[in-house]
Nucleic acid binder design. Structure first.
Lengths: 157, 157
DNA sequence: ACCAGTGGGTTTACAAAATAAACCTTCTGC
DNA sequence: GCAGAAGGTTTATTTTGTAAACCCACTGGT
């Protein structure tokens, strides 16, 4: 589009040459992930979100609109007369759980000094969860230094 | 600290009541994660990062300073006369790989239409990787709807 | 000796985004 | 017919981000 490729940054266009960038185009601002965390926790109404987060109302409004536009949330009328709306996660939104869990775990490891503020469990077992990266071939847990990166079929640069 | 708890938002203080918030206090702005992605990819110099990302130089400067201050990166003099520096991931920084992978995977699933721009592999197997959340008790892969959340020992609210 | 080029920044002027507070609208229940 | 709740929008102000210019130390070429 631009000959000198100015659009390397946050472009607002999720069809990026990098999937991290694509993701950040949707949820990579100061508030979106906090809004989503709150929705994951069960807050679905505008007022509740606003109070819990302390976000300015106009910003919350625009963030929710953007998340709805990007199909991460849906706006559902849960009452008529007076009309009341709530925001629910779509499948795509729920699929962000892995990312939120990764961010939470990092915060736990480096800022919670062994005492996590929130613990996630398997609903049926009530046991703790663990997030791992595994090799689809050998099945072993792969740490950051054993990871290699190569261009895939969607590479555009 | 503040009686009416105004500090629910992005406070710049990672010792938050929520680990997601703590994490976002460190890397939750428009650029930090993109800078880190670039460092993960092997770009360690100021100029290289600036050119690759298209970020304003003063912003890159302040982001790098903040990441160094928070011990995500270290600034290493790799040459004297003239002095040249490079930025390297610390252990804490490398530990963000899970989060970057989660964000990348989400982008792959929802914006790459089956063709990932980048593929991560197990260095020794050359096979694809998979990120999963597993139960420490039953060992099964736990999807977003089977996850339960409860307050942990570090809860402060 | 001079000058261009490289690396790693800082300063400055300007534009965009965030914040806080006030305001608006529709409806209910008293 | 008034207060209060829900879900916003408008407005003024402050904070951030952006782009371009500039600075400094040094090297290698002429």
């Amino acid at each position: 589009m631009n000959p000198k490729s100015k659009t390397t940054a946050i472009t607002g266009d999720p069809s990026s040459a990098c999937s991290i960038e694509a993701t950040l185009d949707v949820i990579g601002d100061r508030w979106s992930l906090l809004v989503l965390r709150s929705v994951f926790r069960g807050n679905h109404q505008f007022s509740t979100l606003q109070t819990e987060l302390g976000i300015a109302r106009n910003l919350l409004s625009s963030r929710l609109a953007r998340l709805v536009e990007n199909e991460v949330l849906t706006k559902v009328e849960y009452q008529r007369r007076p009309k009341r709306y709530e925001y629910r996660l779509t499948g795509k939104g729920a699929d962000l759980s892995q990312a939120l869990i990764a961010l939470m775990n990092w915060g736990d490891r480096w800022y919670a000094s062994g005492k996590a503020p929130t613990i996630l469990t398997h609903r049926s077992c009530d046991a703790a969860l663990e997030q791992v990266v595994v090799c689809t071939a050998c099945g072993t847990d792969v740490g950051p230094t054993a990871i290699s990166s190569r261009p895939g079929p969607g590479r555009r640069t």
